[in-house]
Design a protein around this nucleic acid. Structure first.
Length: 816
DNA sequence: AAGTAGGAGCTTTTT
DNA sequence: GCTCCTACTT
């Protein structure tokens, strides 16, 4: 069984006792090793029921299970995702946390609704804070295992003060609704383990051997859970790559993997550095990029793979051209026999997919967008699932509120408000209040009757709670009148909705068939709540794949396009506050690059549409970190780059060697691009700017720096055609500047606004008092650097000193 | 109570 | 640009 493994792989696979750290570079056969290791354990006599394998996605878990089935006779190992594991544990031990076994997992939308309910129940003044801000903060706290009892607000931080008020109210509301949010799954289990030594020992013994995939993306809560499950049986094997840690924003702590050896001093470390996936060219690009990170473990990637094509770096005139030209290339490849499923396009944000989609659709290229979430977020699907949720857990107030008047039952806002008042007053759930409609004095004749009727119907539906899931769905669909409402209208939108519900029903039938023994409504609802985007990815269909860089983790494709390598996009605008965030963006790019097996193209657009108009872009700083001399570069010469005007002298992003060349230089002829292409047909690849065309695309009022692309220009960069006053800050150029909107009420209370008004950089002075939504009041100690990167060092009452790039920070001057 | 119009707010990544 | 929410009208 182990014959097919290389030396280090075999070492990893045969180390089954004690803590093990497998540092696995991209494409190093990690999944194979983990699978073989598990199989080897079983073969060595370990009881498979004592083995727990945690993966990042359900898909990975299923795949591992499938491979195990092939390798060993008894493969009753539990492979699961972290959240699913916690959910199951809580179904068993939830009473320790005040939960019943039929508790509901609220998704982000549900959590927001629950928070709103808590706010209206207790009449909390949010001081213009957004619910989402508060939820993010609560989420952060939970990931740090800080309960509301433990939470200590920083003095002078206004957001903290509100969170201190709302966190307990929100949490109690969740418990009263017999519900948890995503973070609770981890928090409750961690608290269960830390607060109940007997339970901890039981579970420690039950999961004698634990192995964890993508360990670099675990957060503190997950880390603690693993640690507590590995006290008596320290057989914890973690696999990961610090260079692929991309979930810091979600609380993942890269230190977990960097410090693993400190936590478990007897750890055996195995490095898998040989790459079996990519060409040396691709690997070199990845390697050089990631070397710019300081927070990392040095690692030597290498491959025996033979040379392939150079990695391409292309600048397109605008994002429409970018999408069209990529679609053209893909079209051409498919025409010559490439299977569409071997091609993928990655982007930083979901919004970027639209243009690509459009271009692909124009050429009738089949594609799939990997967004598993989307299906379950559709109104009709959420509605039906809300009924199922309410059947499963009658205390689910969010589900109740969602469907009490869907389809319409003549129960309006006033009635619902009265119902809520009653429920809040007696501390009961909404369904119970509805069942007591007769006793609610504020409800009048028809309203009372309608509420009663709804409650009775729910009572009736609840009787089928133990039926097969597809049976329940059918009953709900018919008996609630949902079907009737959809089919009656005859409008095409509703037909599509009906189709979606058919799909839901089919999936449920499938689920029932696969879960004959341990099915049940809560298991079904769990998996619906815990879908991962990647789970929806169909790797066996002949379609081009479109997905975010985050979703691409763990996958591989022969041909990869990464688009929009532009400042503010990658690295993203909201990641510019600290070096560590920029490093995470770099890792994200690294993940994207290393997905590619044989061909990779990295591109950017020189103009991109934002808010309906074309705006000039700034190349991503990451592009200067690539081995350009080894790549095939299609870039304009430096003086046409907008960055030249923003950063007059510092940044020499683009090599001097191209300085005097014509505006665009195609380094190699188009027919050289595809090694397997010997037909001589030109792959559409013109990247030349067409001045006229570009002008047409520009709305008259868009404040574009009108730079003439002048092929004959001398060594001096040409003067911008627009007078210097046009050139203000990068923020203004990019359309994110709101400096016209002044505070309207200077005498009003000093309240931090939900969406801070951005002040022009020049309005900040040294020694000025400023307000930050998270950190509260502070004083600017110093301002350094110039232009768009002007940075202020601010001393906060709450947390001390912190640095901000003025153009991108939510600081507000306080007028003294 | 339902339906419509207009405005505000919001767009990073996701379990 | 788009969606969600609110306030107003019917």
């Amino acid at each position: 069984m182990l014959n097919s493994l290389t030396e280090p792989q075999r070492t990893a696979a045969t180390t089954i006792t004690g803590p093990l750290l497998i540092l696995a570079g991209p494409g190093s056969g990690k999944t194979r090793v983990v699978t073989h290791r598990t199989a080897y354990m079983v073969e060595q006599g370990v009881n498979p029921r004592r083995i727990l394998t945690l993966t990042f996605t359900n898909k990975a878990a299923d795949e591992m299970q499938a491979r195990l089935n092939h390798l060993v006779a008894d493969s009753s190992v539990w492979t699961s995702t972290f959240h699913k594991f916690c959910s199951r544990t809580l179904r068993e031990y939830g009473s320790y946390a005040g939960l019943e076994e039929n508790f509901t997992i609220y998704d982000t939308t549900d959590s927001k609704k629950a928070l709103k309910q808590a706010i209206e129940e207790h009449n909390i003044d949010l001081f213009k804070y957004a619910e989402s801000q508060i939820l993010t903060k609560i989420s952060d706290l939970k990931n740090q295992l800080i309960t509301y009892e433990d939470f200590e607000p920083r003095p002078g931080a206004p957001l903290d003060a509100i969170v201190q008020k709302l966190y307990p109210l929100y949490q109690k509301r969740l418990i009263r609704s017999n519900a948890v949010d995503f973070d609770d799954l981890l928090l409750h289990v961690a608290k269960l383990l830390s607060g109940n030594p007997d339970v901890r020992e039981d579970l420690d013994a039950r999961y004698e051997y634990i192995s964890v995939d993508e360990y670099q993306d675990t957060n503190y809560a997950q880390y603690m859970i693993l640690k507590m499950l590995s006290v008596n049986h320290r057989n914890l094997a973690v696999t990961g790559d610090p260079d692929q840690s991309i979930y810091g924003w979600r609380g993942a702590n890269i230190r977990n993997i960097l410090d693993f050896e400190k936590d478990f001093p007897e750890t055996k470390v195995v490095k898998l550095e040989q790459n079996y996936r990519s060409t040396p060219q691709i690997l070199q690009v990845a390697d050089q990029l990631i070397s710019y990170n300081t927070q990392r473990k040095e690692k030597q990637l290498f491959t025996d793979n033979q040379g392939g094509l150079p990695v391409r770096l292309v600048a397109y005139p605008n994002q429409i051209e970018e999408a069209n030209k990529i679609a053209d290339q893909i079209h051409e490849r498919i025409r010559k026999g490439t299977n569409p499923k071997d091609i993928a396009v990655f982007y930083r944000t979901n919004a970027l997919s639209r243009t690509i989609e459009h271009s692909l659709r124009t050429l009738s290229i089949p594609y799939q967008i990997v967004k598993g979430h989307e299906f379950y977020q559709r109104k009709e699907v959420k509605d039906i699932l809300a009924y199922l949720h309410l059947i499963n857990n009658p205390r689910n107030d969010v589900a109740f509120e969602r469907i009490i008047n869907v389809p319409t039952r003549k129960i309006g806002k006033v009635t619902i408000d009265r119902l809520k008042d009653y429920a809040y007053q007696y501390g009961i759930c909404l369904l119970e209040a509805a069942l007591n409609a007769g006793k609610i004095s504020t409800l009048k004749g028809v309203a009372k009757k309608n509420v009663q009727k709804f409650a009775d119907m729910m009572l009736r539906l609840r009787e089928s709670a133990t039926d097969l899931v597809n049976t329940i769905i059918k009953k709900v669909y018919v008996e609630t009148g949902y079907q009737e409402t959809l089919l009656m209208t005859g409008n095409p939108e509703d037909e599509e909705r009906a189709d979606n519900l058919d799909e839901l029903l089919n999936a449920a039938i499938e689920f029932d068939r696969e879960h004959k023994d341990f099915g049940g409504l809560d298991v079904y609802l769990d998996q619906a709540s815990l879908v991962n985007d990647q789970d929806a990815w169909d790797n066996d269909t002949d379609k081009v794949t479109l997905m975010t860089l985050h979703a691409a983790k763990g996958l591989e494709f022969p041909i990869v396009y990464i688009v929009a390598l532009e400042d503010q996009i990658l690295p993203h605008a909201r990641s510019m506050e600290s070096d560590s965030e920029i490093e995470e963006e770099r890792r994200l790019f690294f993940v994207g690059i290393t997905r590619a097996m044989s061909e990779l193209q990295i591109s950017r657009a020189m103009y991109r549409t934002r808010k309906g108009s074309m705006w000039p872009t700034i190349p991503s700083t990451f592009l200067m970190e690539l081995p350009r001399e080894k790549m095939e570069v299609h870039e304009p010469q430096r003086h046409t780059l907008q960055s030249e005007y923003l950063e007059p002298s510092d940044d020499d992003h683009f090599g001097d060697s191209e300085f005097e060349e014509p505006v665009f230089e195609v380094v190699e002829s188009a027919s050289d691009l595809n090694a397997t292409d010997d037909s001589g047909d030109d792959v559409p690849f013109d990247v030349f700017v067409d001045d006229q065309k570009l002008d047409e695309n520009q709305p008259k009022n868009a404040p574009i720096l009108q730079t003439k692309l002048n092929a004959e220009s001398d060594t001096k960069p040409p003067e911008p055609q627009v007078a210097p006053p046009q050139i203000k800050t990068a923020a203004q150029m990019l359309g994110v500047d709101n400096s016209e909107n002044r505070e309207e009420d200077p005498d009003g209370p000093q309240v931090v606004r939900e969406k801070p008004i951005r002040h022009p950089t020049s309005s900040f002075k040294e020694n000025m008092l400023v307000m930050h939504p998270n950190y509260g009041m502070g004083r600017i100690l110093s301002i350094s650097r110039a232009g768009s990167k002007q940075t202020a060092n601010v001393d906060f009452v709450s947390i001390g000193q912190k640095k901000f790039v003025l153009d991108f920070c939510p600081l507000q001057p306080i007028v003294e």
